[in-house]
């Protein structure tokens, strides 16, 4: 039986691990190689690096980090952030990444996802979707009619609204060759209030490819909910692991006790 995956996410800024709250307020959380080694030892199923380095000049630092980590760690490594061309994909794969995650560039040019998938295999193409719940303003304080929830896709690290519907966009991306989807709720990111389960469910029930849940984990129950009620195939978390609230091992034992198949 296929195990549900626990994936610690390392936001990387100029070669350091950092963690923001709601995409802002950056805090230093350590050296990527040390952090990666620790998670590998604890039994992480994969690692995700999201490069949030703003300037292009600092880009080589990322390749160095990826190379150092790939030299020591023999679990899958996904790297995202600023992946805009097939040359970027190739550079990251040859630095030692196993998958790349594409976000803004997929919205700007969906064909890019197809080309990268054709050239390097769809299994290494993760499309990351950052989205926010669409809140309908109720006129004159009246209660709004109950409608199914909707989410809007954002790009550029959550700064730019696209007008795209997240569920429709997820389907489009799979049609374009995404091998996996990384779904981040911007409303929940960093809040520790749990994943947006309705969002996960809506996407997971619609697409044929694996879905990674992201944004909002504060407790082990949130991981459980994401994998069960949310229907996700993998859960991504940062702060509960970085801050030492829980180890990956604790998370896995907790999930195993509740009947979720995990690799222990």
């Amino acid at each position: 039986m296929l195990a549900k995956r626990i994936i610690p996410c390392l936001d990387i800024d100029r070669g350091r691990v950092v963690k923001g709250v709601k995409f802002e307020d950056i805090r230093d959380a350590g050296d990527p190689v040390e952090v990666a080694r620790k998670y590998d030892y604890q039994g992480a199923d994969e690692l995700v690096f999201l490069d949030i380095t703003a300037s292009a000049e600092d880009r080589p630092t990322l390749f160095q980090t990826v190379e150092q980590v790939a030299r020591e760690i023999y679990i899958p490594l996904t790297v995202g952030g600023g992946v805009r061309s097939c040359a970027d994909v190739r550079a990251l794969l040859s630095a030692g990444a196993d998958k790349v995650s594409i976000n803004t560039a997929a919205v700007e040019n969906p064909r890019f996802v197809t080309e990268a998938g054709e050239r390097y295999g769809v299994q290494c193409i993760v499309v990351a979707i950052d989205c926010k719940r669409v809140v309908k303003k109720s006129p004159l304080g009246r209660k709004p009619k109950t409608e199914p929830p909707r989410w809007e896709v954002f790009t550029h690290g959550g700064r730019r609204a696209t007008g795209l519907d997240a569920v429709e966009w997820a389907v489009t991306m799979v049609e374009h060759g995404a091998g996996e989807l990384l779904i981040t709720s911007m409303d929940r990111d960093g809040t520790k209030s749990g994943y947006d389960l309705e969002l996960l469910q809506a996407i997971s029930a619609t697409v044929p490819v694996p879905v990674i849940a992201s944004g909002g984990v504060g407790t082990l129950d949130h991981l459980y909910d994401g994998l069960t009620a949310g229907g996700a195939d993998a859960v991504l978390a940062a702060s509960i692991f970085h801050q030492g609230t829980h180890t990956i091992g604790e998370a896995k034992r907790y999930l195993a006790d509740k009947g979720v198949p995990v690799r222990i």
Binding site: M1, L2, A3, K4, R5, D45, V122, Q123, G179, E180, L200, Q201, S204, A205, T206, P208, V209, P210, V211, L227, T228, G230, G231, A232, D233, A234, R263
Partner: peptide
Amino acid sequence: PDPSPGTPGARLKVPHMGWNR
């Protein structure tokens, strides 16, 4: 076989991706 849309979590996704025994 490709999964048919339905209950989340209960169906098998393609690709088969992750750790298996």
